[in-house]
Design a protein around this nucleic acid. Structure first.
Lengths: 272, 272
DNA sequence: CCAAAAGTGTTTGAAGTACACCCATGA
DNA sequence: TCATGGGTGTACTTCAAACACTTTTGG
């Protein structure tokens, strides 16, 4: 805020709140977690029109005049997952903003809904409990959502006909954008460590890449790269006891480091 | 859009447009161009309160119900630069969305303004003519804007005291985010070619990196990298005549290729 | 001939690829 | 002892950094 000078606020009196037709501002959350080695996203089955029975990204309205979209995202995230995100300190970042007038059918009643999309990562979240306006909530493996086809259908303004759970609004578009962001970000950031619970092994971390990219980087090279990036992981003195049903040497346990970036980045095999 | 089923639209009748307090949705444009080897951004000196006399990013309101923010950005861009951006095909992309309630003082009159920021790149734009609500418009070298200090001042809610032209609203924050996006994107994309007029020489292209990064990559390595990236540039058969006042061999001229990405990326020397 | 700009060649070292190999543990 | 998973060693290759060098032009 700038300092006040006399008469500076004349424009405020002249401003007529009714002069601007209402935009609604919402946040949509792409909450990713890895369950049993599979990358999943939290979706909520809508209990009301519009898109009753479709699956939607969790989210909600930004509280007018009282919070930013970033704050709304944290608030909704805590509500949807039942976890205190400010304490958890999990990763949350803006991806993009979606403002196409007919992305929400309520445009026909004069409501233009703009939505700021976020991506959140968390290790192994518990199964959600259904919220107030949600008939069901669950983590869906992203592979099962047929995102390319659903996004193409939305783009062409036709209904998606397929076996995957149908996504509401433009959420197939949003989700695939968010997914690509996560995939790209594993290349040049230490984001993967946000997907595992501490303490973790390097094999755990490598399984994150397996789940997100669909293939695992070469074991030896992966270890070297991670260990040579200062601040990516911090070794402990502890070893994880081998699982009771399997053999194998007890692996060394690590904690997350403070580094944000990997330089030079991992190379992702795009054919892969 | 999905197909209609009877009774599906009941929710529309139930919707009360007044139930949602008004958000205003605007776009802010970071229009970068290189003039005389210096990276500059278009700013407009405000003629009215709020922030009268401050310099602001060009932009404007998204037309409610009639366009997306992307479309509004193209429209405003064409208006501000006097160039038909849809024809020009210059680069335009979303950067981030800024929604802090007190980023615009009109929040005190109940108007919560959310702004979607874009970055646009163009080769050598002409000097702008002042628009309707702008006393002056000009391209400022980004080096002269003291962005770090202005951003810090905004963050701490204190007035910027310095020699650089004062930026309105949170535009120092937006502009520095946009600048960092451009700097990063030169590493892994062919964006630099959007900054030069066709046909161009490899030295022209290298001067883009000089202007944006503040230093020039090694000549020989730069040439190898550009020429070995398929579709970055397309050679012509023409040579540019040497300048009349200087010596030097006539350099080969190139056109932009169709490739979007450089893989593996350039490495930027972050120390500078 | 000199300066300036374009363009080439070469050496060196860092880092990724691929894959063979060893180690520790439980059944 | 074997299967399983963790972890190491190493040759090969690719590519960027650095810099010396040649070529073509104008004065």
């Amino acid at each position: 805020m700038t300092t006040h000078r006399p008469g500076e606020d004349a424009y405020l009196a002249a401003y007529d709140a009714g002069a601007f037709p209402p935009f609604a501002l919402t946040v949509d959350l792409n909450i990713f977690t890895i369950r049993d080695g599979v990358l999943t996203a939290l979706l909520i089955e809508r209990g009301d029109h519009p898109f009753k029975g479709f699956w939607a990204l969790p989210g909600g309205h930004v509280e007018h005049g009282r919070e930013s979209a970033d704050e709304a995202a944290v608030r909704e995230l805590s509500e949807e997952t039942g976890l205190d995100w400010t304490r958890l300190g999990g990763h949350l970042e803006q991806v993009a903003t979606y403002t196409d007038p007919d992305r929400d059918p309520r445009i026909r009643a004069g409501l233009h809904v703009a939505s700021v999309a976020y991506v959140a990562l968390a290790p192994n979240l518990p199964s959600p409990t259904a919220g107030t306006d949600a008939a069901r909530a669950r983590f869906w493996p992203v592979e099962d959502l047929d995102l390319d086809a659903q996004r193409a259908a939305w783009h062409d303004r036709r209904a998606y006909r397929g076996d995957a759970p149908a996504l509401a609004y433009d959420h197939a578009l949003i989700l695939s954008d968010a997914l690509e962001r996560v995939r790209a970000k594993l290349e040049y950031s230490t984001l993967a460590a946000q997907f595992v619970t501490e303490p973790f092994t390097l094999a755990d971390l490598r399984r994150v890449y397996q789940a997100v990219w669909g293939y695992a980087p070469d074991l030896a090279n992966f270890r070297r790269k991670v260990l040579k990036t200062p601040g990516f992981v911090v070794p402990t003195e502890e070893y994880r006891p081998a699982a009771s049903d399997r053999g194998g040497a007890p692996p060394l346990l690590y904690l997350r480091g403070t580094a944000q970036w990997i330089n030079p980045p991992f190379v992702r095999d795009r054919a892969g």
